[in-house]
């Protein structure tokens, strides 16, 4: 499923980069821009608080490199990179 705000149409006055969640470094944050290539699973992600436009931060990577831990809607959630690849994130301008 491809949901809303395509990466190509970011407003010109707010230059920002859209990347997939698995590409984000630990500590960096941004806002969810959409889901790509997920079917019913995107609904589940949204139910768990991953809303388009919502803030998201990568807080940790597991010792063996996968899965990752994110902070979303005020709690910690872990998901695999294979899933993170389908989550589009617009990076916040000021990097932590």
């Amino acid at each position: 499923m491809t949901t809303t705000s395509s990466p190509a149409t970011s407003p010109a006055d707010a230059p920002s980069t859209v990347v997939t969640l698995n590409q984000i470094a630990v500590g960096d944050c941004g806002h969810i821009a959409g889901f790509d290539g997920l079917n019913g699973e995107a609904t589940r992600l949204m139910e768990m608080g991953l809303l388009v436009g919502g803030a998201i931060r990568v807080t940790r990577v597991a010792p063996l490199g996968d899965p990752i831990e994110i902070r979303v809607m005020g709690y910690r959630l872990s998901l695999r990179k294979s899933m993170a690849r389908h989550i589009l994130v617009r990076l916040a301008e000021s990097r932590a």
Binding site: R44, M48, Y75, L79
Partner: peptide, 10 residues
């Protein structure tokens, strides 16, 4: 389909 791994870390 691969099962979804979504784990809350309380």
């Amino acid at each position: 389909p691969p099962s979804m791994f979504l784990l809350e870390l309380p």
